[in-house]
């Protein structure tokens, strides 16, 4: 079995996996990081979104062995101790979730979308989240959350 080495949420990880193991299965089944969800398993919904080398990707659509040496961040890696990431805090404050299933992917996509950019308009946020599907909220409060999260990140309250 191939061995993959990567850094997950700042910790070095080494695992023996079958070549066909998807990143999401490594995260959930081997590393017990179950915050990353599988919504569709057909690369459509974005619930499984994580950051690979700082960029949002669908972890159900990449092989673990393709990412040897990569830096991976999951929803579990965002908080600092008991302090949530400003984007997580914004989703809570703006009622940006209902059942919460899509939320880890939404938060990971949102951070990737707004990071290092000037403030985005509502329509830019909507277009930027096209890879993430939510069956509950109707998106309105998600867009509000992302706007607020972006402002909080800009204001230096977090990263």
């Amino acid at each position: 079995m191939p061995t993959v080495k990567m850094t997950v949420n700042g910790k070095a990880v080494s695992a023996d996996v079958e070549a066909r193991t998807l990143l999401v299965h490594l995260l959930r089944d081997k590393l017990a990081l179950t915050g990353t969800h599988v919504g569709c398993d057909t690369a459509q919904c974005g619930a499984c979104t994580v950051h690979v080398n700082g960029k949002a990707v669908k972890s159900c659509n990449v092989l673990a062995v393709q990412l040897d040496g990569a830096q991976v961040t999951t929803i579990e890696g965002l908080a600092t101790g008991d302090t949530m990431h400003p984007m997580q805090e914004a989703f809570r404050n703006n009622h940006g979730l209902q059942c919460g299933f899509c939320t880890p992917g939404m938060v990971m996509s949102a951070i990737d979308l707004v990071q290092g950019k000037p403030p985005l308009s509502e329509s830019e946020i909507r277009a930027g989240l096209e890879g993430n599907i939510c069956r509950c909220t109707g998106y309105h409060n998600i867009v509000k959350s992302v706007k607020a999260g972006a402002e909080a990140m800009q204001a230096g309250k977090g990263r």
Binding site: G46, T49, V57, K58, N61, S109, L113, G128, G131
Partner: peptide
């Protein structure tokens, strides 16, 4: 093309 996540890979 597709969405942000797809464009990254």
């Amino acid at each position: 093309i597709g969405d942000r996540q797809v464009r990254h890979r």
